[in-house]
């Protein structure tokens, strides 16, 4: 079956990003397809590259990154959520004249159209927040 996953919450603040990650891994393990990961609202922090986890805790951002790359997933952060929260791609940062960037290269910035498109092209959309 074709799934899309929407993540509304930042890692660590609530459990839901971790649940979403676990669920996504299981989906793939069970042979299902993920059409898109969509990070909305505080969920965009899951795609941040400027994070450091303590040695004895998991880095959710790194785990997402690996999952996306290994399985070649389409991963989108909502543009209006991301820019407001400082999750910027290199391209976007340059356009705005900012010196740093903070979006992992496994995700791309796009609009809410991609959110609606995910519903239209998936058998199931599962939301975590």
């Amino acid at each position: 079956m074709i799934f899309s996953i929407v993540i509304y919450s930042a890692p660590y603040t609530t459990q839901s990003a971790s649940t979403a990650l676990h669920f996504s891994k299981t989906l793939i393990g069970e042979g299902h397809k993920i059409y898109r990961l969509f990070f909305y609202s505080d969920g965009v922090h899951n795609a941040s590259s400027l994070t450091i986890a303590p040695q004895d805790e998991k880095s959710l951002q790194a785990e997402w990154d690996t999952l996306i790359k290994v399985n070649k997933l389409d991963s989108v952060v909502c543009v209006s959520s991301a820019l407001k929260r400082g999750v910027l791609s290199n391209e976007e940062a340059q356009r705005q004249g900012l010196t740093g960037h903070s979006l992992r290269d496994s995700s791309e910035i796009s609009g809410l159209g991609q959110f609606i498109d995910a519903y239209i092209h998936s058998d199931r959309v599962i939301s975590f927040g």
């Binding site: 079956m1 669920f23 299981t26 393990g29």
Partner: peptide
């Protein structure tokens, strides 16, 4: 477990998440 969670999502025509 999570495997059954996934299976439930496929078994039911619709999934509504309350959070």
């Amino acid at each position: 477990n999570y495997r059954k969670f996934v299976e439930l999502c496929t078994f039911h025509e619709k999934v509504i998440n309350w959070f």
